[in-house]
Design a protein around this nucleic acid. Structure first.
Lengths: 237, 237
DNA sequence: CGGGCGATTGACGGTCATCAAGCTGTGTGG
DNA sequence: CCACACAGCTTGATGACCGTCAATCGCCCG
């Protein structure tokens, strides 16, 4: 299952005809700036489950996600995992105050990123308020998603969690590929569980319950939203 | 219970000798810029439990918290509440992409803020990359706190939640007022419960359990960390 | 003294985690 | 072509943790 949109030629003009430019941080740049940026960044590909960067590693690079989906997660010392988000093409990752990454990021399916050295990107950014503003906007958007997710984790039942997840994942995909009632789920049940603060068994049971109630249809690698209205009602806003 | 640090004279020079300037977004500004900013902002005071801004209200202003503590929370249609954070002096609130606030903010105890009209502040910010960078840093810090909190909400037990909360709240206060084993808790048990994704009863029971175990001492309006090491162990990193 | 609010404590039950078994689809090798 | 293995997912039985409901306490203030 690939969520990918085709990105620019890895060799030739990575930026000029980059398919996700309009979504990404680069949307803020003009042609001259893009030409400058080409020399700083480098396309890197990752296979499924490979780690792009790990929690506590030094933050040497920043990343622009071109194709694929990534899971961003934090681990507790005893191995419990919380996925703090899924990244889609256009996401800008690796910005951190501290010298070390606060979470790990790895590929769900194959992934392509544009990697920049943190220092050269920081130099590039200086005195480019429009780019800074764009980065700030993305950060605020991420923060707002995080706040929504706190409500989900702290105050919603298992059923509400699953319904909310399916709807908001559908909406995020719709922004990339247009509206669609079939919702691809490239991540595993375990990933979904670790995102929603549940166990894999509860996620599985809730999926089958939603299917019995004719709210969704379960297919390998995706679900179909048969009754979006009921799903919205279950999500309880 | 007041966490306040004295802020500048509301009449005279609100910025020049503002006690929290070094903590706030204004730390990025030089004297000339501060003089300019004085005319844009206006000090506003709030009584306990008054609302500074509400979820879904238009974002007409941005706020710099000068004194006091605020709770930031989201409500579900059925009234369930999740507190997404507590704001301390130096916090910069009200930045949002959307035209409406994503959460409500109200005063815990008396509060003083510096209020700016969003549009005039936006104009002031233009072409001030150093200020923009400072705002971005605060946003990233907030995002990082949100991610930590997602782990707490999704993957920690009640006891771990409470222990983690007490330690991290102590650490935040320490940044303002210096280290201290007595931890003021200006917020109610209900606030703590809604922050930790628990009920008030569970919070109360967990507090008394920690007291029985000689980890904390409970006083009206604060707790004393008797055994910080044990607390750290219970928090499980 | 009485009212009221916040916090605490207790009894009980439900939701979801845990443990364990079975299922399904895919790839592999005989 | 089929047996087998394996991983991911589903299903079932059981119980713990924490939510719910209710009573009580402590304190402040009128």
């Amino acid at each position: 299952m690939k969520i990918s949109l085709v990105a620019g030629d890895p060799a030739g003009q990575p930026c000029a005809d980059c398919a996700i430019r309009c979504l990404s941080v680069c949307a803020a740049l003009d042609k001259a700036e893009l030409r400058e940026l080409v020399h700083l960044g480098r396309r890197v590909d990752f296979l499924s489950c490979e780690t792009v960067f790990g929690q506590e590693e030094m933050t040497t690079s920043v990343y622009n996600l071109l194709e694929g989906v990534m899971r961003l997660y934090k681990l507790l010392p005893d191995g419990r995992r919380q996925i703090v988000g899924f990244a889609l093409p256009g996401a800008f990752l690796g910005m951190a105050i501290s010298a070390r990454h606060g979470f790990s990021a790895d590929a769900i399916g194959t992934v392509a990123v544009c990697r920049f050295s943190k220092t050269s990107f920081a130099r590039f950014i200086e005195e480019k308020p429009h780019l800074l503003r764009r980065i700030n906007e993305l950060t605020i958007l991420e923060l707002s998603r995080a706040q929504d997710h706190m409500v989900l984790l702290g105050r919603r039942s298992a059923e509400e969690k699953v319904a909310t997840f399916l709807l908001s994942w559908r909406d995020r995909l719709a922004q990339l590929r247009g509206p669609e009632n079939s919702v691809p789920l490239p991540m595993s049940r375990q990933d979904i569980a670790d995102f929603l603060g549940l166990t894999i068994e509860t996620v599985s049971r809730t999926f089958t319950k939603l299917e019995r109630d004719r709210v969704i249809g379960i297919q390998p690698g995706s679900v179909c939203l048969l009754d979006p209205a009921r799903a919205e009602a279950m999500a309880a806003a």
